[in-house]
Design a protein around this nucleic acid. Structure first.
Length: 347
DNA sequence: CTCGAACGCCGCCAAA
DNA sequence: GGTTTGGCGGCGTTCG
C-alpha cells in the first residue's frame, strides 16, 4: 500500500503515465481522468484528487493496481509552474484528441492574482465538455467552468473565499458556499484545497462502490465522512432535501427518540401505515431504507458527542441508540472506515 | 471470530 | 385493466 513499506506499489509507480511522464498516454480500458494544469495552478488542489484517485481501491493485503488512467495535462505540455513554487511536468492536451476522456478535473489557482479563466483553456473546456462524462473543479477552478458556461443554471460551490465573487461574476450560477462539494448532473464542484479529496472519494464511490471508497479513505488516513458542520454530509438536511416534506414529522420524532430501540414496525405505526406499505413508500420517497437513514442519524449524533463531550464511548453508543459499544464500532468501521476511538483521537 | 436469533428488506402475489 | 395495498416467505445482515 505505501511505498515505504516496500509494497507492490513500487513497481506500479514506474508505469503510471502522466505521473512520471515515462510512457505515453493510455492505459488500456481504465477510465481516463485528465487533470488540467496551468501556470498558477494550486498544487494541493491538483495533487489532492490525484493522490486519492491514484490510490483508489488500494488495500494493504492485495497487490496495488490502478483504477484510473490519470493524465496531468496543460495546453502546451511541458513544465508548468504552480503557485506553491513547484514545477510540474505535464502532457499536452492535444495528445488526448480523439482518445476519449471520462473525467476532467480543473484545480484552482491564481493567474495574475485572479481566479483562473485563461481564454484558451476556457475554450478547450467548452469544446470538450460535451464529450466528457464528468467535469469537476476544485476551489477557484469553478471560475473556469463558469466561464465556459458549464455552470449556468446549476448548483455549484467553490472556496468560501471566492463564493461571493463567483456569484457576482456569474449570476446564472447557484452558488452554495457552505458545501464541501456539490454534484449537479455531470458537473462536480468542490470547495477549497482538501475538499477536492472529499470530492475524489465521492467519484471513487460512484465508480467503484462504497467499499472501495472507504478503503481508499482509510489508506489516505482520511475520513470518508467529515465531522459535523458540513451541510454536504448532513443526513438531516440531505434527507429533508429529497423528501418534499414527506415523513418530516416522522424524522422529527426519530431524532427525538434516537436513543430508543427503533424498529421498522414502530416507524410504520407512527406513520400510520402497515409495515410493507411503509418500507415501500419510504424507499421510494426518500431513496434509502429506513434503517440506513436511522444509522446515519445515529452516526452524526455519535460524532458530535465524541468530539465535543467528555463522555465514554460506551455512553455515546448508548445515548444515540447503538446500544452496545461493539455495535457502534461495527457501524463506524463499515460507514466511516474508522473506529469511534480513532475518530475521537483525531478530533 | 463465531454463532444462533432477531431483524430489515424486497420480490411475489392475491385482494382491494 | 392498471395501480396500490399488505401478507408471506426467503435471503442476507445485524445484534449480542
Amino acid at each position: 500500500m505505501t511505498p515505504d513499506q516496500g509494497g507492490p506499489i513500487d513497481a506500479a509507480d514506474m508505469i503510471l503515465p502522466g505521473l512520471t511522464g515515462a510512457s505515453g498516454v493510455g492505459r488500456g480500458d481504465l477510465p481516463r481522468v485528465v487533470i488540467l494544469a496551468y501556470d498558477g495552478v494550486n498544487l494541493l488542489d491538483l495533487s489532492g484528487p490525484l493522490g486519492a484517485l491514484y490510490y483508489a481501491g488500494a488495500r494493504p493485503d492485495l497487490p496495488w493496481r490502478p483504477r484510473y488512467d490519470i493524465v496531468v495535462a496543460s495546453l502546451r505540455g511541458g513544465m508548468v509552474r504552480t503557485t506553491n513554487g513547484l514545477a510540474l511536468e505535464t502532457r499536452p492536451l492535444g495528445e488526448l484528441d480523439g482518445l476519449g476522456i471520462d473525467t476532467v478535473i480543473v484545480p484552482g489557482g491564481s493567474v495574475a492574482g485572479h481566479p483562473p479563466e485563461p481564454a484558451d483553456l476556457v475554450d478547450w473546456m467548452r469544446r470538450h465538455a460535451p464529450d466528457v462524462r464528468r467535469v469537476c473543479s476544485v476551489c477557484s477552478g469553478a471560475f473556469l467552468l463558469a466561464a465556459a458556461g458549464l455552470l449556468d443554471g446549476r448548483r455549484a460551490t467553490t472556496h468560501w473565499f471566492w463564493a461571493q465573487t463567483l456569484g457576482d461574476r456569474f449570476p446564472e450560477v447557484r452558488v452554495e458556499a457552505d458545501k464541501l462539494f456539490v454534484v449537479d448532473g455531470p458537473i462536480w464542484t468542490s470547495g477549497g484545497m482538501t475538499a477536492g479529496i472529499d470530492m475524489a472519494l465521492a467519484l471513487i464511490e460512484q465508480d467503484r462502490g462504497h467499499a472501495e471508497a472507504i478503503s481508499t479513505a482509510r489508506g489516505l488516513v482520511m475520513f470518508m465522512k467529515r465531522p459535523g458542520g458540513q451541510a454536504q454530509f448532513s443526513t438531516t438536511l440531505d434527507v429533508q432535501a429529497r423528501s418534499d416534506g414527506a415523513f418530516s414529522d416522522l424524522h422529527g420524532w426519530i431524532r427525538q427518540n434516537l436513543a430508543r430501540r427503533l424498529k421498522v414496525s414502530d416507524l410504520a405505526e407512527k406513520a400510520g401505515m402497515t409495515e410493507r406499505t411503509f418500507t415501500r413508500a419510504y424507499q421510494s420517497r426518500i431513496g434509502q431504507s429506513p434503517l440506513k437513514v436511522i444509522e446515519s442519524l445515529r452516526i452524526e449524533a455519535a460524532c458530535e458527542l465524541l468530539t465535543s463531550k467528555n463522555v465514554s464511548v460506551k455512553q455515546v453508543a448508548a445515548s444515540v441508540g447503538f446500544g452496545a459499544e461493539q455495535n457502534m464500532r461495527r457501524v463506524f468501521m463499515r460507514r466511516l472506515g474508522v473506529t469511534p476511538g480513532e475518530y475521537r483521537e483525531r478530533f
